[in-house]
Simulated assay, not measured.
Amino acid sequence: MGKRRAFLMAGAAWIALGLAGIAHAASGEARRPETRVVHDVAYGSDPGQRFDVYLPPSPHDAPVIFMVHGGAWTIGDKTNPGVVEDKAAYWLPKGYMLISVNYRMVPEAGPLEQANDVARALAAAQRLAASWGADPHRFVLMGHSAGAHLVALLGADPALLSAAGAARPRGVVSLDSAAMDVVQIMEFPRHPRLYDRAFGENPRDWAAASPYHRLRSGALPMLAVCSSRRFDACPQARRFAQKAATLGTRVDVLPQDLSHAEINRTLGQPSDYTARVSAFIDGLVAL
């Protein structure tokens, strides 16, 4: 119990530092000068329901990485440093398109509504994909932190995607979510308050927004990257993968000796980590 309490206190401090970094980071263009960007494509009436499209040179039937930012479900933006820069620099020259998505924040929209926003954004992007030179049938969902939870939730229960009019993506890359089992988090008496703000007090809402509890046969293939420096991220990822295996669904777990922020920020930089994530994605979108 003492170790668990220490973890929760450290987790709250880590999250506070992460949110402070997001809040104070410059929000300049996350692109190289030659990159073409389609800005603020609307998928709903709310100003938060927008995404940016980063196009590779001469795209033709390009596969698409559909990126969802983090921020504890309460803050963050599609242009925050670390969300796009190195990912675009790595994947655009490989012929991929990258889409970075905003969604409504707590308290305006809870996590399940946020997942529905992401699903609606995906449906809109798939409808427009051919006009940009992308293949609407070769999308891969990717998200970090809160965004990792949202894409894991959609991957666990693809009915959420079809309800929004989205076609089935090829798979999911979840970058260091420690919220795979929301019920377990919320039932523990002492947990960071950010979870209370996001998930509320109703156990039915916890289960409805929990990837572990929504996981079913027919879930999307998933790569769950987790920081081995955190207490609970990798154990939750492994338990999620074990349940997926009983349902005949592929979930690979990739522990990394990186901080939570580094798992997002360094993806795309030359490393074995980038190579392994890239190989997983390449395998998903291969024709």
Results as ranks from 00 to 15, higher is better:
1 M>N: 11
2 G>W: 02
7 F>H: 15
7 F>K: 00
8 L>I: 01
11 G>R: 13
21 G>K: 09
26 A>G: 15
27 S>C: 08
27 S>V: 10
37 V>I: 15
40 D>W: 00
42 A>C: 10
44 G>C: 02
44 G>D: 08
46 D>T: 04
51 F>Q: 06
52 D>L: 01
52 D>K: 08
63 P>S: 07
68 V>E: 03
73 W>S: 10
78 K>W: 01
79 T>I: 07
81 P>H: 05
88 A>E: 10
97 M>H: 03
101 V>C: 04
104 R>G: 09
105 M>Q: 15
107 P>G: 10
111 P>K: 04
119 A>K: 05
125 A>H: 08
126 Q>P: 13
133 G>V: 03
137 H>E: 14
137 H>M: 01
154 L>S: 11
155 G>F: 01
160 L>S: 04
166 A>K: 07
168 R>K: 15
176 D>I: 10
176 D>R: 07
184 Q>N: 12
190 R>M: 11
205 D>Y: 00
207 A>P: 12
209 A>M: 03
213 H>A: 09
220 L>P: 11
222 M>C: 05
235 P>A: 01
240 F>Y: 15
242 Q>W: 00
246 T>M: 08
246 T>N: 04
247 L>S: 12
253 V>M: 04
254 L>R: 07
262 E>Q: 15
263 I>W: 00
277 V>C: 01
282 D>I: 00
